[in-house]
């Protein structure tokens, strides 16, 4: 199984990200070369406005790369049709869903849309996968609740279950811990760690919870002043990457505890 674990799910080749208009290109980060392996939990870290969202949008084909390429399962992202991409990549977004009248089961079942027929009938196989996703995220007892009855933490678990039901090699989450209390932040990230191990899926999330990410992730992608570093958390600490993350006037990284401290 060791060789299978080394299988690379997503890879970027000299990727430049940013925005292009007719007149000019605004490059936000360039020369991004990362490789994410199967069954890994990866955290994406960086200050506000540094380009985390832009990177995620480029990796998920919401916007085009300025240069270079993104490969999923060795196939260029630009060669994926929307319905094929939906079978290898699922998302958990920051936006709230508006249809709160859906039951938890119905919402998770929508993850099966890429596989169902023209009217969306669920096969026995679909039901098995949905129930497994509910089980893996510990929300069996919420199955028939309506979404407006759920707390933010429960809702986030439901959205993760929906992504699991989509049955993709890669799950990308955009700041899954915002709006959550400290306990639920840890709970959600711990759950993601468990899911990556159990299901052998690659799970990439962006977050501002740097200390939690250092403790839980297999790999961290850190975006600092126009540069992207991708390595194991302890190696990144050794290299002193976290000290370059923010301006130094207010907070400093404490290597012993792996967390930030306010300057006294």
């Amino acid at each position: 199984m060791d060789t299978k674990n080394q299988h690379i799910i997503i890879k970027t080749k000299d990727l430049s990200i940013g925005y292009a208009s007719k007149k000019a290109q605004t490059v936000i980060v360039s020369n991004i070369n990362i490789e994410l392996k199967k069954g890994e939990l990866i955290g994406l870290i960086g200050a506000n406005g540094i380009g985390k969202s832009t990177l995620l949008r480029t990796l998920t084909k919401v916007q085009k790369p300025l240069q270079g390429d993104v490969l999923i399962n060795s196939k260029s992202l630009s060669n994926y049709q929307a319905e094929d991409l939906a079978k290898v990549l699922s998302l958990v977004l920051t936006e709230q869903i508006t249809a709160k009248n859906l039951s938890v089961f119905e919402l998770v079942a929508l993850g099966r849309q890429p596989y169902t027929n023209w009217i969306g009938n669920l096969s026995q196989n679909d039901l098995t996968i949905i129930n497994k996703a509910l089980n893996q995220t510990n929300i069996d007892d919420l199955k028939y609740k309506k979404c407006f009855e759920l707390s933010d933490g429960q809702l986030q678990k439901v959205m993760i279950a929906r992504a699991l039901a989509q049955d993709t090699d890669l799950i990308i989450l955009d700041e899954p811990t915002t709006h959550l209390d400290m306990y639920h932040k840890a709970y959600i990230l711990k759950l993601l760690q468990k899911l990556a191990k159990e299901t052998n899926k690659t799970i990439l999330f962006s977050s501002h919870e740097i200390d939690l990410a250092i403790q839980l992730c297999d790999t961290l992608i850190v975006i600092t002043n126009n540069k992207v570093v991708c390595d194991e958390p302890c190696k990144l600490i050794e290299k002193g990457v976290f000290n370059t993350l923010f301006p130094k006037d207010l907070i400093a990284f404490d290597e012993k505890t792996g967390s930030f401290r306010v300057n006294k």
Partner: peptide, 24 residues
């Protein structure tokens, strides 16, 4: 209308999620 039942259900999640589910 009957052929739009599945897209309509997908659209309940909002357009961004619908797109990520492969909906045109």
């Amino acid at each position: 209308s009957i052929f739009s039942i599945k897209p309509l259900n997908t659209l309940l999640l909002g357009e961004n999620y619908a797109k990520s589910l492969g909906l045109n």
